[in-house]
Simulated scan of single mutants.
Amino acid sequence: RAAHGHVEVVHGVSFSVGKGECVGLVGGSGSGKTTTGRCVTGLHSNASGSLLFEGHSMPFAVSSRSKADLSAMQIVFQNPDRSLNPKESIAQSIARAVRLTGLADRARVG
């Protein structure tokens, strides 16, 4: 337990994502995957530390982010019925998320 009644859930996380790369967080139940993803995408503002995006510091709170920053990243929540479907390629799984967010039209994505 940390000071002031806060509980440290995830600590010491550091990773880098290059332009055009896609990252998947993998780990056991309760390892902090969802919390980490929510912090990066601004859905969990009760965080500390630093978040750098394209060379600038980004606030944890989604309400404090610029429109450009908000449109630059997207979280794809796990859907147990469709995630890692052995009948689909990784490209098909990612294409579905891209279509749903409106980042590309069906003709471009497939």
Results as ranks from 00 to 15, higher is better:
Q78Y: 07
S57E: 14
K33P: 02
T35G: 03
L84H: 10
R96E: 15
R99F: 05
F60H: 02
K87W: 04
G30F: 09
S31I: 07
G37D: 01
E8W: 09
H44D: 00
Q78K: 13
Q74M: 13
K33N: 10
E21W: 03
S89R: 09
S31C: 12
G37M: 15
F53N: 03
C39Y: 01
G24S: 08
A72L: 05
V13E: 13
M73V: 10
S14A: 15
G27E: 02
V62Q: 10
I75H: 11
A72W: 05
G28E: 15
R65V: 06
P80W: 06
H11E: 15
G28P: 05
T35N: 03
Q74G: 09
S93I: 09
R82E: 14
R38F: 11
V10N: 08
L84D: 00
F77V: 07
V76P: 04
E88A: 13
V23K: 09
S66Y: 07
G18F: 05
I90T: 14
S50F: 03
Q74W: 13
Q78S: 09
T35Q: 08
H11L: 08
N85Q: 12
R65K: 02
S45V: 01
A61I: 10
N46V: 12
C39S: 07
G49D: 09
I94E: 05
S57I: 12
L25K: 04
I90Q: 12
H44R: 07
T34A: 04
I90F: 14
I75M: 15
E88S: 14
P59N: 00
G30K: 02
L43K: 01
G30R: 01
S64Y: 11
V9A: 14
L43A: 08
D81S: 14
R99A: 07
T41Q: 01
G20L: 10
G55R: 12
K67F: 01
G32M: 02
L52G: 03
V98M: 06
T36W: 02
V98H: 04
S31H: 03
G32P: 00
R99I: 14
E88K: 15
R65A: 04
S50W: 09
S89D: 09
L84A: 14
Q78L: 11
S29F: 00
P59V: 11
N85G: 04
G24F: 11
R96H: 11
E21N: 05
R99Q: 13
H11N: 14
S29Y: 10
L25V: 03
R96C: 10
L52N: 11
L100A: 10
V13H: 06
G18N: 07
S57N: 09
V23Y: 00
V9M: 05
V76Y: 11
S64Q: 15
G28N: 07
L84G: 08
K19N: 11
A95I: 02
N85T: 00
G49E: 13
G20Y: 01
Q74E: 12
F53P: 00
G12E: 15
L84E: 00
S31E: 10
T101D: 07
S63F: 03
L43D: 09
K67D: 13
A95P: 05
I75D: 00
N46F: 12
V26P: 04
